[in-house]
Write a protein that binds this DNA or RNA. Structure first.
Length: 496
RNA sequence: GUCCCCUUCGUCUAGUGGCCUAGGACUCCGGGUUUUCAUCCCGGCAACAGGGGUUCGAGUCCCCUAGGGGACGCCA
């Protein structure tokens, strides 16, 4: 049987380095075995999924050089590859599970569930569904569902004993069933949750090896149960260590640039990024550290995966990237530079702004350098001439960051609207409110229009610049951050 | 809080009982090449979390402790 692996991102945000990391190992492993690597889009969260995000993720993955053999855009024999197009499949499987007693209908209200959770937490128990609807008469439950009553489908979980399973990296693991919740498999909107959809799809798509993040380790018992209930064989599982921030926590956008587009914009080469990611939890048998993905594939040994969570630290990536750039031929180097930013497509975004401000073509460069460069180097004095004091600058930058994280659309007008409503809520005139933001984003007192600049720079870069401006202002302590978070939550921002 | 996972230089790692007075890489520091800078070269600092076992012998196996992380959502 041919080895088949997959990466299954959820299109709910910007392309993430973690996705590229997992995709790399899945792809390399599949290729090393002569198998296939599949892209599956897990868009079962109706509220948060967007086709824009899906497109951005596919684009970014292709940029890193991690393309797929089957996927929503190119099809394949196991399609469709977008979970929202497979709803009937999940429904049928859920029905089968209910019919065989492996799952049950649940009619509990959100209120009851909240209350239950509160009580369990107060008693220092692991929050877990209490089985209320599990004891309902199956016939009666079916009638209620048929009558159109709102319901979910829950997985029936053994009351005692332990679930044993094996992880390819860590070996045998046992988790008591008591710790496992009666997971919702089908939500009240009829969409499946990850647990049902992933297992069903992995089986139907003939996935043989699942390499995924360690965060899934504790839901393994649920997945095991579903495989067993269907009588399916369980694919080999390898839980990859989680990429970490410098403080050891799971890598997050607040502390690190986690967006692939940041790396793309800054001028990291895809091959350098792949090389770096390959070093996170894996090593070449001969300990070589500079290698391309073909060499990695040729030498790949899945048993060389390690267990500790590697810190995603950019110093080594920078060095690796330098090595890659210097090893390019002069022609290749020129091509890369042209592809990077000084190309027609990028120029198209700024040219209209710049043209009006240009008398001689040389004037162009100083006008756009801050758009092309990394974060501007700032210190506290850059903010002193403003009408707001340092504390207010911090407040503005912090709140803008939070507001922007909630912002889906990323064009000039949308950004302007979002920030105007924020300024109104804070009660500051736009003029004053914008000043620190202008400095943070552009690094200057004079630059191209702010919202155009932000639109061009993109979410990841703007976030990075806000973050570094905050550091320049002395940083935000944990306590201050909490305070700011509360202050922000208390604001009544007009969401229009 | 409960459960699970993890723990070698600051960071990424090698190490699968003797080849380890623990090796490599990045960072940092020092020196050299370069009329500058960068590259490049040479050198240096720096770790087996702690405690018990098992063994002739433990970074490597077992146990305990500590620390870190993850999960505990009608998110994935």
């Amino acid at each position: 049987m041919s080895v088949r692996t997959r990466v299954a991102p959820s299109p709910t945000g910007d392309p993430h380095v973690g996705t590229a990391y997992v995709a790399l190992f899945n792809r390399v492993f599949a290729r090393s075995q002569g198998g296939q690597f599949i892209l599956r889009v897990e868009d079962t969260d109706r509220q948060r999924s967007s086709s824009a995000s899906e497109a951005a993720i596919m684009d970014a993955l292709r940029w890193v050089g991690l393309d797929w053999d089957e996927g929503p855009d190119i099809g394949g024999t196991f399609g469709p590859y977008r979970q929202s197009e497979r709803l009937g499949i999940y429904r049928d499987h859920a029905d089968e599970l209910v019919a065989s007693g492996g799952a049950f209908y649940c009619f509990c209200s959100k209120e009851r569930l909240d209350e239950l959770r509160r009580r369990q937490q107060a008693n220092r128990e692991t929050p877990r569904y209490d089985g209320h609807c599990r004891n309902l008469d199956p016939g009666e439950s079916r009638d209620r569902v048929l009558a159109g009553e709102t319901h979910v489908v829950r997985l029936d979980v053994p009351a005692s004993g332990t679930c044993g399973f094996s992880d390819g990296i860590r070996g045998a693991i046992e988790i008591p069933w008591q710790q496992v919740d009666m997971q919702i498999l089908v939500k009240s909107d009829g969409f499946p949750t990850y647990h049902l959809a992933a297992v069903v799809d992995d089986h139907l798509m003939a996935i043989t090896h699942i390499l995924r993040g360690e965060e899934w380790l504790s839901s393994m018992p649920k997945h095991r149960l579903i495989y067993d209930r269907f009588g399916w064989s369980v694919p080999a599982h390898y839980h990859l260590p989680l990429l970490r921030n410098a403080d050891g926590s799971k890598v997050s956008k607040r502390r690190n640039p986690t967006g692939l587009n940041y790396y793309r914009r800054i001028g990291y080469l895809p091959e350098a990024l792949r090389n770096y990611l390959a070093l996170m939890g894996w090593s070449m048998p001969d300990e070589r550290e500079i290698f391309d993905t073909e060499e990695m594939t040729a030498a790949f040994d899945i048993d060389r995966l390690t267990t500790g969570g590697p810190v995603f630290d950019l110093a080594k990536l920078d060095w690796l990237n330098g090595q890659c750039i210097r090893s390019l031929s002069p022609d290749e180097f020129m091509d890369r530079v042209a592809d990077w930013a000084i190309n027609r497509e990028n120029l198209a975004a700024v040219a209209p702004l710049v043209q009006q401000r240009t008398e001689r073509l040389v004037d162009l460069l100083p006008q756009v350098d801050y758009l092309l460069g990394d974060r501007p180097v700032l210190d506290a004095s850059d903010f002193t001439a403003l009408r707001l004091d340092a504390d207010d600058c911090v407040r503005v930058l912090d709140h803008v960051g939070r507001r922007l994280d909630e912002q889906d659309e990323w064009d000039r007008d949308a950004l302007q609207g979002a920030i105007r409503s924020l300024a109104d809520a804070v009660g500051l005139p736009m003029r004053d409110f914008l000043a620190p933001l202008f400095v943070a984003v552009t690094g200057r007192k004079v630059a191209l229009p702010l919202f155009d600049s932000m639109a061009y720079l993109g979410r990841d870069m703007v976030r990075a610049r806000l973050h570094s401006a905050l550091s320049a202002l002395g940083g935000v302590s944990k306590k201050a951050a909490k305070h700011l978070e509360r202050a922000y939550a208390d604001l009544e921002v007009d969401q229009a």
